[in-house]
Amino acid sequence: MNRQGRLILLVWLAWLAPSLCAQTLLPIHVLADEGPFRDSFIQALDAAAIPPLTRVADPQQAELLIAIGDRQFRRAQKLDKPLLGVYVSRSAVALAQRKRCQCQGIWAGVALHDQLAMLEVMMPLARRVGVIVGPESAWTPGMVQDYQGRLGLTLLPVSSVEVLGDRLRERLADFDALLLPVDGQLFGPDTAKLILLTSYRLRRPVFGPDQAYVQAGSVASLYASGADLVAETLVHLQFFHNSRRLRRSGFVHTPTIAVNEHVANSFDMVFHDIESLRDAMEASP
C-alpha cells in the first residue's frame, strides 16, 4: 500500500473508531445488599439499551464497579477499580476521593435548590427557612451559604442527635418552614417523632428529607426513587463509556415528588396533591 493509501486507511479507521468503540460492551459489576431494590436495579440496567452493557459476575472482569449504598461503596474501594457509588453519602465519596480512589457518586438525597424550588411553589408565603445540616448531611454548610434565591436561609448546624432537640426548640419558631437534608445519622426513625411533632406544635411545616419522612408526616419532599437512580446511573455509564472517565458526583437531576396530602392540607399549602404540584413545578421558571 502506498503512502496515500495508508493515509486514507488511517483517516477511515479514525472516523470509524467512535462507532466501533460504541458498539463495545462495557463490562460492569454491581455490588449491592440482597433485596428487592438490588434485583430491580439490576433488571433495569440489563434492560437498558444505551449504553451497551454487560454485567459480569467477577468484579475483576469489570471495567466499572457500581456500588449501592455506603457499605458496599466502602467495600468496593478495595477492588481498586473505577467505582460509581449509587445513593451514597456525600461524605463517603469525599473520604474515598481523599484516599485517591477513582470514584464518583450519585449522592443520596436531592439538590438543595430543587427542594427549595418545591418549597417556594408549595408555600409562597415563606420567606425564612431553617436548614439543619450535620457532618453526614447531603448538603454542606457552603451549599446553604451559597444560595442566592428569594428565600432567607438560615443554617442550623447540628453536630449530633443529642443536640437536635435543643436546636429545634430554640430556633424553629424563628422560621416559616424547616428543610431537612438526607442524613442517615440525624434523620432516622428515632428522631422523626421529635422533629415532626415539634413542628406540628409550633405550626412550622417540615420539608424533606425523603419519601419515608413524608409518609411519617413531613409536608413534602423530592427524593431519588429507584427509577431516578437508574436513569442517573445510565447517564454516568454513558459518560464513562464514551470517555472512560467518571462523571462528576452529584444528585439525581430528575427527582420524584412525594407529598403528604393531609399534612400539606393542614398547613394550607397552595398545592397538596402530587399531580397539581408536579404541574406547577413544571410550569414554574
Binding site: 433485596g35 431494590f37 449504598g69 445513593y87 443520596a108 438526607v182 442517615g184 432516622g188 426513625p189 422523626a192 417523632k193 415532626l196 411533632l197 406540628y200 425523603d210 419519601q211 419515608a212 419522612y213 409518609q215 411519617a216 408526616g217 427524593y223 431519588a224 429507584g226 393531609h262 399534612v263 392540607n265 393542614s266 398547613f267 394550607d268
Partner: peptide, 21 residues
C-alpha cells in the same frame, strides 16, 4: 434502600387542625 427502617406514621390526620382555607 434509603431509610430501610422507615419511621412509623407519627402524625395523624385526626390530630391535624383544619386549614384556614
Amino acid at each position: 434502600m434509603p431509610l430501610a427502617d422507615a419511621p412509623a406514621m407519627v402524625l395523624t390526620p385526626a390530630r391535624l387542625s383544619q386549614p384556614q382555607s
